[in-house]
Amino acid sequence: MSSSFLNVQGLRKSFGGHLVVLDDINFQMEAGERVVVIGPSGSGKSTLLRCVMGLEKIDHGRIELEGVRYIEANPKSHKDNFVDIPVRNKVGMVFQHYTLFPHLTVLGNLILAPMRARGESRSSATQRAMQLLGRLGLESKAGAFPGMLSGGQKQRVAIARALLLDPKIMLFDEVTSALDPELVTEVEGLMLELAEQKMSMMIVTHDMWFAKRIATRVIFSADGRIIEDAPPSTMFTNPREPRTADFLKKVLHVETIS
């Protein structure tokens, strides 16, 4: 048992047994850290987040939160891992395509899980939800359906929906990739606010400038492995591994960013 806040041990994930997406990943992070995962497409970045959320069946390994094992590969079962659901529910996740429930209003999206899964009263859940929406400047949208919102608004609602469950850690899977450029800032701004409040985060993004700004640590992954793990200052100015340097050169079209 490790004392780390989040501890991923020997994680291996393949699709259909042969296509290995994550290969023996070992990774720890402390509370309050903001880890940004970068790397070429298909390097398993999103899959890593999905494994931490418990959305993927893993072949091997275990994942612990605050010293408690909550996901472990079960070699006997082809279908499921061992999952400690109450612990897993301390992890929150936001997806690239918002995944709001289209048939519920913004408020309905926010209070569904607190009310139906956590047994909170409607009035209390509504009060907390309205407070949070107020903080995000989305109060007037409480009665709107997701289809009527802009992409940036949808993504902020999705973040609010996850936050209302008081997660210990938030996972952000390419949350700005589907947004129009002018809407990216409002979502990134909200994430920076969360950073100020010392929220623990794992972020997958293609936006290197944002990565540099928000990360306390950057992980470069390729071919299902962690190639380099460094603070943003080192990673973006003076990467140790040639592969990292090569990748950064391609995505930034410059040697380094300062």
Binding site: M53, F95, A113, A117, A162
Partner: peptide, 12 residues
């Protein structure tokens, strides 16, 4: 994706 969202929100 909708099913993923249900898992991420801890909906049984």
């Amino acid at each position: 994706e909708q099913r993923d969202a249900c898992v991420a929100l801890g909906l049984p």
